[in-house]
């Protein structure tokens, strides 16, 4: 469904040019959860943001193709890309406090996605928002709708962000460190939420994280990144039982009991 081919991203750092992502190939199939694992600075977030061309202007995509259902996302015009963003491919960020606009209520923010990408009427949008909040496991959606982001707890905020991400029925969700800021118990719940959403809504998830344990319990396939390159890739079970690259082995050691 989505295929990243030979993606290379560079940034000018004073006099030198640093390569953040070096020739990355990453296929994401339908209804698959793919884990992209690496330490900070490995280029995983940059790769994820590149799919939707959300990189800052200082970063240059020097080569590569991102094929999404026949279209090359890196080459298509901005107008087309905007129709894809939020609708076919959406993102869940690490810190909902930063990703949500603090002066709008939750229903206004999710409503914005629906307004832009669907033709629902106001009443239909209201119903859909409540439906979405229920789907992500928020027990009193009516109250949460009226709340501002800072009035919710961390776990609720992250669920609200996931609700916003699935609002327009995307085919792919890019989740960038979605649980890093949450307690372990909340993290466990969000993992289950992702699993059930994948089954119910038939979507794929690109899970970007530094925690191999998270990937082990959620992802079907895993790609390990180090310094801009993919060093190991394969089905999760196989990679974890038989890691071949030294970096993967190190990550495994850390997560084992």
């Amino acid at each position: 469904m989505l295929n990243i081919n030979g993606l290379t991203i560079k940034v000018a750092d004073g006099m030198d040019v640093k390569t953040l992502v070096a020739g990355v190939d990453l296929p994401i199939g339908e209804e698959r959860i793919v884990g992209l694992v690496g330490g900070s600075g490995s280029g995983k977030t940059t790769t994820g943001l590149a799919i939707l061309r959300l990189l800052s202007s200082q970063l240059n995509i020097t080569s590569g193709k991102i094929d999404f259902l026949g279209k090359d996302l890196l080459a298509c015009p901005e107008k087309e890309l905007r129709r894809i963003r939020g609708k076919d491919i959406s993102m869940v960020f690490q810190e909902p406090l930063n990703a949500f606009n603090p002066v709008f209520t939750i229903s206004q923010q999710i409503g914005e996605v629906l307004k832009y990408h669907t033709k629902l009427t106001r009443r239909q949008r209201k119903e859909r928002i409540e439906e979405l909040l229920n789907m992500v496991g928020i027990k009193d959606p009516v109250r949460v709708c009226r709340n501002y982001p800072h009035q919710l707890s961390g776990g609720m905020r992250q669920r609200a962000m996931i609700a916003q991400a699935i609002a327009a029925n995307p085919k792919l969700i890019i989740a960038d460190e979605p649980t890093s800021n949450l307690d372990v118990t909340l993290q466990a719940r969000i993992i289950e939420l992702f699993r059930s959403l994948r089954a119910d809504l038939k979507l794929s998830i690109l899970l970007i994280t530094h925690d191999l344990g998270l990937v082990a319990h959620l992802a079907d396939e895993v790609a390990v990144m180090q310094q801009g390159k993919i060093v190991e890739t394969g089905a999760t079970r196989q990679v974890l039982e038989n890691p071949s690259h030294a970096y993967t082995k190190k990550l495994m050691e850390v997560v084992k009991i």
């Binding site: 307690d183 372990v184 118990t185 993290q187 466990a188 719940r189 993992i191 289950e192 344990g213 998270l214 082990a216 319990h217 959620l218 009991i257």
Partner: peptide, 9 residues
Amino acid sequence: LTAAIDYKS
């Protein structure tokens, strides 16, 4: 414990 070790709730 279940959440931290098994990532389960």
